[in-house]
Amino acid sequence: MDLSAINPAVLLASLMVASTPILLAAIGELIVEKSGVLNLGVEGMMITGAICGFAIAVQTGSPALGFVGAAAGGALLSMTFGVLTQFFLSNQVATGLALTLFGLGLSALLGQGYVGIKPPPVGDINLGPLADLPFIGRVLFQHDAMVYFSLLLVAAVWAFLKYTRAGLILRAVGESHDAAHALGYKVVWVRLMAIAFGGACAGLGGAYLSLVRVPQWTEGMTAGAGWIALAIVVFGSWKPWRVLIGAYLFGGVTVLQLNLQAAGLAVPVEYLSMSPYLITILVLVIMSSGRGRAALNAPASLGRSFHASS
């Protein structure tokens, strides 16, 4: 065993990259859940975003346009969920699962002509002297634009929820749709917008996989990342910065277990592979223990259909 081979700066830098897809998807889902909607179809929207982004980036030669297309694709697919749950009042859990099934099939159909192609490369942003700082430079300042975008998005979501009127309305809708409706807010439209935002973010997360982290297109390439994003929203108790911590923690444990293996640590691999999930459960328990739902910060109307009876 040679643990000295693990360079903490490099480890931190790669955990940021590894965490970005789930962070993007999770921050989108946070907004969705804050509006009182539980969309379990994150996986389906991510993979659809992955192929939309990939296809558009390949066709246009521009990764930036690819990301725009991924966001649009994810948002468009999420509207299926939005229309079903908001207008047809279908059960959110079942519709979300159906969305995942549909998204996996649709993406595979769309992607049939894109297997084995290399996408246009996404470069790292040149931050000049910052990148040369010892330790910090390697950890923070040698990444591609999407890593920074995801961090900005977390900040923006945090500010949106905390300081803006629109954020207040969104929270009101999520806490009590009946009260929000009585106050004259358009519950259904607020939720639709939140769902679209969630879809766009999930799409971006998927495209980050297919354009940056892997980069290639293959069926089922998200391999469960969407489910992790869902877990992280709860793990972060619906707070943007905690979601960031959760995503980085999960990405960190994943990267660390591979590094420990590479360093020859004699821990059974199966148990190492379980560790990110077990640690997430453990943290969930610690966070929720001894406190009620209110302390957990869960939107009170989460998962409930809204129908204006008046």
Binding site: A5, I6, N7, V10, L11, S14, A18, P21, L209, R213, V214, Q216, T218, M221, T222, A223, A225, T254, V255, L258, N259, Q261, A262, A263, G264, V269, E270, S273
Partner: peptide, 27 residues
């Protein structure tokens, strides 16, 4: 030799991370 058991035949993200981990450790 440094061996990483990925316990998958196919998971691009995990394979990428595994390669990254190996490269970072000097492979």
């Amino acid at each position: 030799f440094a061996v990483i058991w990925a316990f998958t035949w196919f998971d691009p993200a995990k394979e990428s991370d595994a390669a990254q981990a190996l490269i970072e450790q000097g492979c």
